[in-house]
Every structure is written in structure tokens, then in C-alpha cells.
Simulated scan of single mutants.
Amino acid sequence: MEKYSYFKLKGIINNPLRIFFLCGSYFNHKDTSGDKRIILKNFIESVNPNNKCLILEENFLFSDSENKLNYTEINLKSLKSIEMLTSLMSERVIILHESLSTAAEIGLFSSEKVLNEKVLILVPDIFTSEEDLITGFMKLAYDNPHFTNDNLEVIRYFPGQFIHETSVNLQKPHFYFANNELGDNLKRQLKSLLPNKEKNLNIEYINRYNFNNQKISKFSIDKEYVSVTLNFDHLVMLLLSLFTVENIKSEIRTPPSNQNGSNIERRNRAIHKTVYILKENLIGFLNRSIISEFPGEKNKKIKIDFHYNGINLNQAISYFVYVLYATKMLKITNIQKIVITNEFSKISHSYSQLIITPKNDLLLEVFNS
């Protein structure tokens, strides 16, 4: 009966998987023990086992590597689009702001209202840095005490500081967490701003063209197509629910038949196979969800897109698989077999409530006819 399963179009997950995107100006690949993002990651993940942090430099490259995934393998070639895609899949975008690079990231993420609400800036207090790192345009645009509509969440904290001498004429302050720990005050502020509420799935039938609420996903029906427009939160919820379906998990766990080539080539084949399985099932489940409500539309093709331009379905699902790999939800063995970890099975279990297996003979007849 599983092959006839479909999605609920509305549902609530009480303790969801939450992805936190951590941004900063420098990542020390050789010694990560004192890296501020690693320390931040350890704290956030200690608050709730369902919290998972993503540091791009820790997991991905623009070239082949035995230990890291290659963006270009899934047709992602611009760091701007990668950061946008990561932020769309994240609960919070936390930026350790200290440089021109992180200022550019703040500008990038604040350009979309739905992302603006996710951004949290951690900035050294003026008494530590000896200057306010949020000045001029940034102050007026994102930290304005008089016009607060577009303000971002800002936490000012007290790090340690040392001066790095790039040359005789150039010195730059570098900041660190004393004793490689967050201060108690910073912990309290962070904890209060980490999402802890349930997540809602809401895919509505919309019979009009001026529907622009990006927090609600929608579908519409015309003479030829069923058109589904998803926000990324809902895409992630639907994909996670597929990992609770036994026959889908079995397919994902089965290694690709072609085991020729290098480890990297075989790993890539395993990832692409997983993407294909998720994409085909996402389309099939959504199609049957809509047929369950509108049986007369079963012969129409289904199109899936997003509220955001420039990202297609294949890229979105591929990157979602990358995120699961980077957050240790999925592993790939030395025989290039995808492993769904026990932790991921436990976290994703609650998403099974989004899956409906029909018992109504009339509905099965509609799917089969």
C-alpha cells in the first residue's frame, strides 16, 4: 500500500529538525578547536539534539575532494546562490560580523523579507573592538532605534582580542571566545533567540493569481497543469517525511549498480541516485495528495516551483541531500552506500504523521485508473 501513499497538505511537527547557518570571516581548517563558529555550533547543538549547524567551509568545496562535497557536481557555481539556498533551508542565519565579507553577507540576506527575519548578527561590543562595527549605512538600515521595521536582531558580546600584524603597516584585530567558551550572558541571549516552537505545513488550494504570502505554499489548477509553489520550509518538511517511508528508505540504502570509478565518482553516483529517488517520490506524493482532493484532475501534469526565482527543483533537492550529509544525518560508506543514521531516523520519525496511506478502495481505484 505504500506506493499509494501521499502527503497531508496541512500538519504540525512539534520537535522538528532545525538547521542553523553559521557565517563568519575566516575558518581555520587546520585547527578548528578555537574557531568561533565551531564553539557556537557546539553550544547550539547542546541546547536541543534536533539543532544542527552548518558551516559551509567545513563541508563543501568548488573542486573534487575525498572529504568534502563539490558544489559544481550539483550545478551550483555561485557562492551567492549557495548562501541564499542555505539560508532558505535554515531556521536562523547567524553571522559573526567582523569584516567586509560578513557585511556583504548581511546585505545579501537582508534583501529578502523572509530571510531578513532569520538573520541574527553577533558583533563585538565597541569597548572590546574600540570601534562600532555596525556603522553608517548598516546602522541606519539594520540597527536603527527610530525606524525599526527592517532592523535585524543584533547581539553585542565581549570577546577577547589580539592584534594580527599582516605587515609593518597593516594590523588587524582578531576576536576569540575566552577559554573557547561562550560567556553566560551571550548564552542566555542566544538561547532566547533560537526557535523552539513547532513547525506548520500549510499547502493551500488557491484559485486566484495575486497570492503572494511566501509563508504559505499553494497549488492552483488550470486546463493543463497542477502548479505547486512551495516555500523552502515546507519543501524540507515534505522531503524529511519521505525518509519515514520504508520502501523509499530501502531504495536509498541500495548502492548504485555501477560501482566503477574513483571513490569520488561512486560517491557522486550515490548522491545523484538519492536525489532522483526523493524527486520522483516528492512529485508522486504531491500529485496523489491533490488527486485525493480533486479526483477529476488526475490526468494533469504537475509542476513544482518556489516563491524564490533562480532555484530549480533538482538543485533544491540536491542541496538538501548535501545538507543532510554535512549535518551527519546521512553517511556514505566505503562501498558508496547511503546510510540513514539512527539519529536521523529518530529525528525524522515525527514527520511520518505527514504521510497518509489510503485504506479507501474508492481512492485506490482513482489512483489506479
Rank of each mutant, 00 (worst) to 15 (best):
S90N: 10
N75K: 14
L88D: 04
N42Q: 14
N75M: 10
S81E: 15
H97N: 13
L40M: 10
D35C: 12
Y71E: 09
N50H: 14
D35R: 08
C53S: 09
L96K: 01
L96V: 13
L40W: 00
N67T: 12
E66Y: 14
I39D: 00
E91T: 01
D35S: 14
E58Y: 05
S90L: 06
I82D: 08
F43P: 06
K77Y: 11
I95G: 03
T102A: 01
K36E: 10
N59Q: 08
F43Y: 15
K36R: 13
E45H: 02
I44P: 03
D35G: 07
F62A: 11
V93R: 01
K77F: 13
S99G: 10
E66P: 00
H97P: 02
M89L: 15
N42W: 09
N70T: 08
C53D: 06
E73D: 15
I74H: 05
I95T: 05
V47H: 03
L100C: 02
S81F: 07
A104T: 10
K80H: 13
E57D: 14
M84R: 08
N67D: 14
R37K: 15
K68C: 08
L61Y: 14
T102C: 02
L79W: 11
I82R: 07
K36Y: 11
M84K: 09
S99T: 12
M89S: 08
M84Y: 07
K36I: 15
F60M: 04
L61C: 09
K77V: 07
K52Y: 06
L56Y: 05
L56S: 12
L76Y: 00
S87P: 05
L40S: 00
E83I: 01
L96T: 06
T86I: 09
I44N: 04
R92E: 06
E45A: 06
N50M: 03
L88R: 11
N75I: 00
E66I: 01
T86A: 15
E105M: 09
I94Y: 06
M89K: 06
I55A: 03
K77L: 11
H97A: 00
K41I: 00
I38K: 02
S78P: 03
L56I: 14
E57F: 02
L56C: 09
N42S: 13
I94Q: 04
L96H: 04
I39H: 02
F60L: 15
L76W: 05
K68M: 13
E66H: 07
G34W: 11
K36H: 05
R37G: 00
S87L: 11
N67K: 14
Y71L: 15
S87M: 11
L76V: 13
T86G: 06
S63D: 09
S46H: 02
L100N: 12
P49H: 10
V47M: 03
E98W: 10
L56H: 00
N51Y: 14
S78R: 15
I82Q: 05
S81C: 08
N48C: 15
H97R: 12
L40A: 02
L79V: 13
N50C: 12
E58D: 13
L76H: 02
K68F: 09
V93P: 01
S65F: 08
F62V: 06
L96N: 08
N67Y: 14
R37N: 00
I38A: 00
P49K: 13
M89H: 13
N70R: 13
D64F: 11
K52N: 07
D35Q: 07
